[in-house]
């Protein structure tokens, strides 16, 4: 009798402890999900509330009468310092900065990766290591010289403007930021493409050489058409990084109507004239967050892959 009973009891207690285990695991996972979602949730619901409701209601409650007014105000009226023209101008500043910077740095990274894997020369590892190290430096250590150089270029641009009527983009904050982001993004884009092309079969390049394709023809006809995954990864990574940058933006375009989105948002939030309109601030923050958030939702897989590639080499 007992010999039959024991395994049965064990089995039943096994099942219940297993269920308990699962409940605990799912409970913990849900709790952490709340922790990660909370700030976004608060930001989102607040941006649809009236000031009245914010002052008298609960932070976590859903808006009683959802209103788009804070979003509209944030987009076209909100004050950053003393100018009250909304976020829209700064939003476009960011777009104008991000798009060229991403395209240029990605293209250069692809070319660098191509040379560093398929056209190796003596010392290629050293060159790569030096470019890779640039990814890790604290940008504070180059901030000041860059400011000095950009300042001189700006003055030179004014001279050119007076002499020829055209400043060739010198002294333009957007051009400056594009340049800065290309320079300090090169390490990452090169890393991504080098690691991807490292695994790209070298026999294809040999075959194309025998077929008579030149250096650039091989790049355009063989390498690029087969690089879609890494292009997506690089573009997303660079887009997120450049859009979210605050240090360079505040150092080289920290005031006036040339500010990118992040700087403008910080100014809006810290503008202390009059009543603080939290709903408008939150809407402005949401507007600043939306582009990267959308990219994340649409192509999160590639975003994670980019982060990983930046962290774990090879």
């Amino acid at each position: 009798m007992s010999a039959v009973a024991t395994p049965a009891r064990q089995a039943s207690s096994g099942i219940s402890s297993k269920t308990l285990n699962r409940v605990v695991i799912y409970g913990l996972l849900a709790l952490f999900a709340l922790f990660y979602l909370m700030p976004l949730f608060v930001m989102l619901v607040t941006s649809f509330k009236t000031m009245d409701e914010i002052q008298n209601g609960n932070m976590l409650s859903l808006p009683h009468a959802p209103t788009f007014a804070p979003w509209i105000k944030a987009w076209s009226e909100v004050c950053s310092g003393l100018t009250c023209v909304g976020m829209k101008g700064y939003f476009w500043n960011s777009i104008k900065m991000v798009v060229p910077a991403v395209l240029i740095s990605t293209l250069l990274g692809a070319l660098n990766g191509y040379v560093l894997t398929k056209w190796r020369f003596r010392g290629h590892t050293l060159v790569f290591a030096m470019m890779l190290f640039a990814c890790f430096i604290p940008f504070q250590s180059v901030l000041l010289p860059m400011a000095t150089i950009l300042g001189s270029l700006g003055r030179f641009g004014v001279t050119l403007q007076n002499a020829t009527g055209f400043n060739f983009g010198l002294g333009n904050s957007t051009v400056n930021l594009v340049f800065v982001h290309v320079v300090y993004g090169l390490g990452f884009t090169t890393l991504f493409f080098r690691n991807y092309y490292e695994a790209f079969p070298t026999e294809l390049i040999k075959a194309a050489q025998v077929d008579g394709a030149s250096f650039f023809q091989i790049f355009r006809r063989i390498m690029l058409p087969n690089s879609l995954p890494i292009i997506v990864v690089t573009v997303i990574y660079q887009f997120t990084n450049i859009w979210n940058d605050f240090l360079f933006a505040s150092a080289y375009a920290g005031s006036g109507d040339v500010m990118p989105m992040t700087v403008a948002l910080n100014n809006v939030v810290n503008t202390s004239t009059g009543v603080v309109e939290y709903n408008v601030n939150m809407a402005a923050a949401m507007i600043a967050a939306l582009p990267t958030l959308i990219v994340y939702i649409v192509a999160g897989r590639y975003f994670v892959r980019g982060l990983m590639a930046g962290a774990v080499k090879g």
Partner: peptide, 18 residues
């Protein structure tokens, strides 16, 4: 993972409020 896609500035605004 999504917080990693957000700017520190946005994150800061949300947490400051929270």
């Amino acid at each position: 993972l999504y917080p990693m896609a957000l700017s520190f500035i946005v994150t800061g605004v949300a947490w400051k409020w929270f």
